[in-house]
Design a protein around this nucleic acid. Structure first.
Length: 505
DNA sequence: GTAGGGTTAG
């Protein structure tokens, strides 16, 4: 289709209006080039409104071309703030979000004044890029422009600091906001929950409620994900009851959050119940259910569900597994001892579904091999990884070594511990595993050496902690921590359990 | 005469 101004019925409209109308109906870069030629001919090239529409198409339409948009703005004599903002917004959603920051620098160099709509997308770019250094400069600029009091700017500042794991700063911004909306509360909750400051996240929910804000769906999803992470079943059930009481529609997100919470808390019956009742499910819903089953020892059921998900006869024709689904699948294999299947799924993940394995997938596969006692194979698997294994991967194998290598003197435990300590020499927890491994096989001198290294280096293991939900409140337990007045029956029970386990094995 | 905005899933 060739576009010309005179093809329009609206002959009476001005050249400029015709041009804007054409831009409005523009669908491809080819059409845009034709319009661009017309713009040149009619001398509308420096019109700020026309320019912003050109930039809008190149930055935000499905056939966008950001370099094109950028060149429009850079070559314009005086681009309006709107053009700059649209360009920044385009980069925020692109694969190279930090370019937004450089556009902003250029904008400032050329003396354009940012307005309150400049900062949200700019901060969003810094947030997705986790660019703390750049984001702080933006924050400072927002303060200089007196725009940091805008509620949208504030919400994005919270989100930015949250994404950079600067929770104290996120909370500081929140605390100093002159005006807040539900989104502000949700943003600060997100920051806490994402960084596993779960109690604080839950606290913000109830403070929000106390301040008279109505929690929305996002608030509920966030609260549920904090419950899921803590295994705080009683609070999770309370949230569920609130959803029913308020007559909130069980959206895919809310339903998934419930399935996730029940699944992680081990209440698989409830998880399954919500899952079955949901009208719409997406890949996250299925993944949450699969992972819940896998993590609680129902490996075969998890894999069965995965097969159903992939079965085209079901209502989920468009649901394709993603990286989270495969974490659940591999977790199922390791808990069910299915090594060959694990290899097969790991292979299919990339070759059939095009999902490039992440570090966690390699770790999960090491867990599959390690739990099955195939330690050498796991070691070779790590050596053959195309990415540099992180300490977690080595620690997974080392833990497997302490279980399986105790009476076997192949020395794989030693090799693995060397690899791990090379990467993370100062983490006390690593040395504790190594010392225990030596002690287990009676290599007392070596064990003592490791302990001495720890002591001399001032290294301590961060105490492992367990939470138990009792009568609706969370109780935290540490090893060696002794708040209970009468532990004797507890130890008797534990002894009994250990005996039972040994007899079963 | 004038255009555009935020938070959420292992």
């Amino acid at each position: 289709m060739v576009l010309r101004f005179r093809t329009l019925k609206t002959q009476s409209l001005s050249k400029k209006q015709q041009c804007l109308s054409l831009l409005n109906s523009c669908r491809s870069m080819d059409q845009l080039r034709q319009i661009q030629a017309q713009v040149h001919v009619s001398g509308l090239y420096q019109d700020t409104r026309v320019l912003s529409e050109l930039v809008y198409f190149c930055s935000l339409s499905p056939s966008k071309n950001l370099r094109h948009a950028r060149s429009f703005v850079h070559h314009a004599a005086t681009p309006s703030p709107i053009s700059w903002n649209i360009l920044i917004r385009g980069y925020a959603a692109s694969d190279s979000p930090l370019e937004a920051f450089w556009v902003f620098r250029k904008m400032r160099e050329r003396g354009a004044m940012p307005n309150k709509l400049t900062f949200p997308f700019l901060l969003k770019s810094c947030a997705v890029a986790s660019a703390l250094f750049e984001g702080k400069q933006v924050h400072a600029d927002a303060v200089k422009c007196g725009l940091d009091s805008d509620v949208y700017v504030g919400n994005n500042l919270i989100n930015f600091y949250g994404c950079c794991k600067k929770i104290v700063d996120a909370r500081k911004v929140f605390g100093e906001m002159p005006e807040r909306t539900v989104v502000s509360w949700n943003s600060v909750m997100t920051a806490c929950v994402e960084s596993l400051w779960l109690g604080d996240g839950i606290g913000y929910f109830f403070r929000m409620w106390g301040c008279g804000f109505e929690p929305d769906e996002t608030s509920m999803v966030l609260l549920l994900s904090a419950c899921a992470e803590l295994g705080y079943l009683s609070l999770g059930r309370w949230v569920h009851s609130q959803l029913v009481l308020r007559g909130m529609v069980l959206s895919v997100q809310l339903g998934t959050a419930l399935v996730d919470m029940y699944g992680k808390s081990g209440a698989l019956g409830y998880a399954r119940d919500v899952f079955e009742r949901m009208e719409n499910r997406n890949v996250w819903t299925w993944s949450a259910m699969i992972l819940g089953l896998a993590q609680h020892g129902f490996g075969e059921e998890a894999l069965e569900l995965f097969a159903i998900m992939n079965n085209n006869n079901n209502d989920n024709r468009d649901i394709r597994p993603n990286y989270v689904t495969y974490l659940g699948v591999l977790c199922a294999c390791s808990h069910a001892g299915m090594v060959d299947e694990g290899y097969q799924y790991f292979h299919d993940m990339e070759c059939v579904h095009g999902i490039k394995p992440l570090m966690t997938h390699y770790g999960a596969m090491v867990d599959v091999l390690g739990r099955a006692g195939r330690l050498e194979e796991a070691y070779e698997f790590i050596q053959s990884m195309p990415i540099e294994p992180d300490p977690v991967v080595w620690r997974t194998l080392l833990s497997a070594c302490t279980v399986h290598d105790v009476h076997d003197h192949t020395g794989i435990g030693e090799r693995v511990s060397k690899k791990l300590l090379l990467k993370e020499p100062r983490r006390g927890g690593n040395l504790v595993i190594v010392a225990n491994m030596y002690a287990e096989v009676g290599m007392w001198e070596e064990a003592a050496n490791v302990r001495r290294v720890m002591r001399d280096g001032g290294m301590k293991k961060v105490a492992g902690e367990s939470c138990v939900d009792l009568g609706g409140s969370m109780h935290r337990f540490f090893a060696g921590y002794d708040p209970c007045p009468d532990l004797v029956p507890v130890y008797h029970l534990l002894d009994g359990l250990n005996l039972h386990l040994k007899m079963v094995n």
